[in-house]
């Protein structure tokens, strides 16, 4: 029994990695709110172009984090967190591809107008 408890502690509370009903409901409600905010801003033309883009991207990123933490339980599991490390690497490549493409092709468009 003592062994059992030790194992629990050394795994950093792995029994919590399934989440609870409460955490799923909280995640669901936050996701709904974060979906409605950009919809309201876009449908009612509440902001100018740049402001709208910022609101859309910030709420999308927050909702992505909510999915990761409340639904996919990225913070749980054993140490070291290979899943989180892999994800960070993936996001690094993602940003390089997306931001790099926008940057280079944006410059290309300027060049072609000349």
């Amino acid at each position: 029994m003592a062994d059992h408890n030790n194992a629990h502690n050394s795994h950093g509370g792995e029994r919590h990695e399934h989440g609870s009903l409460k955490s799923y409901i909280i995640g669901y409600i936050i996701s709904i709110v974060l979906t409605i905010i950009p919809l309201v801003v876009v449908m009612n033309h509440m902001m100018e172009r740049t402001g709208t883009i910022i609101v859309i991207m910030v709420t999308a990123t927050l909702q992505f984090l909510v999915q990761l933490i409340f639904f996919m339980h990225v913070r749980d599991g054993e140490q070291p967190r290979w899943n989180a490390i892999t994800l960070v690497f993936g996001i690094l490549i993602l940003l390089t591809i997306v931001v790099g493409s926008i940057w280079i092709m944006g410059n290309n468009a300027i060049g072609m107008k000349m």
């Binding site: 899943n83 993936g90 490549i93 997306v98």
Partner: peptide
């Protein structure tokens, strides 16, 4: 099972990479 879960995470990350190229293409 933990290893299978990690393996699946790695698959999901490669899927992220595929979607990132499609998103970049769309945006451009």
């Amino acid at each position: 099972q933990d290893l299978k879960l990690l393996g699946f995470w790695i698959f999901l990350v490669t899927d992220v990479l595929m979607f990132s190229t499609l998103f970049a293409t769309f945006i451009v």
